[in-house]
Nucleic acid binder design. Sequence first.
DNA 1: TGACGAAACGAACGTTCGTCCTATTCTACG
DNA 2: CGTAGAATAGGACGAACGTTCGTTTCGTCA
Lengths: 198, 198
Amino acid sequence: MTKGEDTRSAVLGQALSLASQLGLEGVTIGKLAEHVGMSKSGLFAHFSSKENLQVAILDEAVERFVALVVAPALKKPRGEARVRAMLDHWLAWSKADFMPGGCIFVAAFAELDDRPGPARDRLLAAQRDWLGTLAGAVRIAVEEKQFRKDVDPEQVAHELYANALGLHYLSRLGDPTVAERRTRAAFDRILTDARARH
Amino acid sequence: MTKGEDTRSAVLGQALSLASQLGLEGVTIGKLAEHVGMSKSGLFAHFSSKENLQVAILDEAVERFVALVVAPALKKPRGEARVRAMLDHWLAWSKADFMPGGCIFVAAFAELDDRPGPARDRLLAAQRDWLGTLAGAVRIAVEEKQFRKDVDPEQVAHELYANALGLHYLSRLGDPTVAERRTRAAFDRILTDARARH
DNA sequence: TGACGAAACGAACGTTCGTCCTATTCTACG
DNA sequence: CGTAGAATAGGACGAACGTTCGTTTCGTCA
């Protein structure tokens, strides 16, 4: 890895952490430069525009999400086990130490949803992908006859997604430990309902 | 109503609409002044600081939420009917025409959750209130023996809250009509699970 | 009608933002 | 070792931000 790629990657790590706390818009080039010990202009040269920086931050986040959540789950056997692995890693993701302000996708979504542009496109594509991946894992569990055949995979994915969002908000609204327990209970209820009766 | 209170109220209406699209921080005094056809300084005099303006926007939103969601539901009979009324009005609220960017509380939460201050305090208090109100309505339904007595009202409130959040995000991620249908289905499943078996 | 307080205005402030340009330092390779 | 090109620094810019100030307009009641 060349020197440029090296610092660029280090910058993105810091940027990810900052963005989770202050939002994408809050990651100012000056503040970010100060955090990594560089000059504004030196850092700026890596991205050429703030918009590019924002997209790069999202790309970095997506890459980590795939590595930490999606990929490990795909190694699990098809069916409910894989769905549960996704949920487990998802909960761990939202507590990841490189995102002290919580899931960056949640923060970015609220900012970008009314501001068209490349960053918004990148974020929406990533979230649609993930929702599709979740629904796909549920569909496989149906095909494997672990879930009832009248289960709607997209409805289940919708509800799981909603509860993960709920964890993000409710752990800031009250006790994070309690919020996580309730979220796990909700996940359980959704999957138990979907399970085929024996 | 004096002239000052009159324009102040008109300003807050516009501010609410802007904040739902751009977030609280995006409601710039200059932009807001332009929207209502005033000078920056003339508008600024009503609030004395941007922080005060943000709190005033939240107060305005809370007032409307109580009038449009909480109050009508409290007129319904105790029990599941009241819970369902809350949910119905809540869904209508998140589509209110004075918030073209969606529920302002969701937008504000993402911005404020890592920025201590009066605005954050106001928002957290309001959301805790609402969560408590929801849980209270569920508890009443348990007391009225419409819900099973082993139902945990706070768990139910948590799941309802999570699904309402899910609606906000998922209606921007995909078809809003489909998202609302799925949210209603999730609400139904939660309440049906809670209902006493006959 | 005259006067007084409330309300709104226009201009300016200091700061921070993203971006650009030029010069300097570093790094890798022939 | 020397040099070309990559990487970084320094400084300046125009615009937008929140805020302040002194002045002007408006509404109300004696």
